[in-house]
Amino acid sequence: MQDEALSEAARAFRGRSVVSANDFTRADILAVLEAAGAFEGRAGGPGSTPQEPRLPGRVLGLLFFEPSTRTRLSFESAMLRLGGSVLGFADARVSSFSKGETLNDTIRVVAGYCDAIVLRHPNEGSARLAAEVSTIPVINGGDGSNQHPTQTLLDLYTIKKAMGRLDDLRVGFMGDLRYGRTVHSLAAALLHFDVKLSFIGPPSLKLPPDLRLEIEEAGRLGIEVESLDEVEDLDVLYITRIQKERFPDPVEYERVRASYRVDREALLPLGPELKIMHPLPRVNEVAPDVDTLPGAIYFQQTRNGVTVRMALLDLILGGGA
């Protein structure tokens, strides 16, 4: 893609809300990933060097109506590393929301206290509503089971960093394909690229029909199987947690959970080049002996969260401008 198109897409992020991965164009994705490259090695961890302040005096509001560790802390880390400050709450019980205030009012009020808002909320569509009523940009930090667009961006960044490209890739998704929002958002975002997407999961947790149709119509559908044994030739395997609450029968849950656990031996036939990703937290779907495989990149994936969120905040709030 031409540099000019990328620069244009990067400029368009200034003051923009980020609500859904479905809103991203290919240029949007590439612009954020390119911007993230500039913060590589500035996001903490071994060998990291401090980032020059790019957002001094800017304040990010973190409104977390639901518990979160990674998303909240990585946004906080990203903003602090850029020289900005954060405020907000991590528990809806301490906000006016618990007194019955509408989300609409909460957003309008908080918009007067900061320069951008990160919102996590249990209701699907809450971020879209917040972005409509807010006078400042709103970044969706997860709206129920719907969207988590910054997770999608950091997943894409992780794939690009590990593979050197986003085109000409075979990506497999395994686990909860039905309810896993990370699967839905990443699969939809990957449709902007030349990829083949395969799906491995139990019949009760198949991909939603509409998304499946979209992938099929785009000519990007690989195989759909119940077991990893039936899969050959993958570049990336994206594993998600199978959640207990999705199963009315605990026996069925235990059976499914046991059959979707991967260890070194199960991954061996897929070769040493395979990259293994997981949005974390994991329960037991990825055995600890996988951690030392060179292709296990799920901890790098979470670290990339800070880098990508630094890039996104910098683009939205016009860092260095």
Binding site: T102, S145, N146
Partner: peptide, 29 residues
């Protein structure tokens, strides 16, 4: 659990294709 069923906001749906009618909720998607 769509926000339109939990907050005072009007629903907005976008039509996908023609008949049979399929609509996407612009909030919860």
């Amino acid at each position: 659990t769509c926000v339109t069923n939990n907050e005072p906001v009007q629903t907005v749906f976008e039509r996908l294709g023609r008949y049979p009618f399929r609509f996407r909720c612009t909030y919860c998607e």
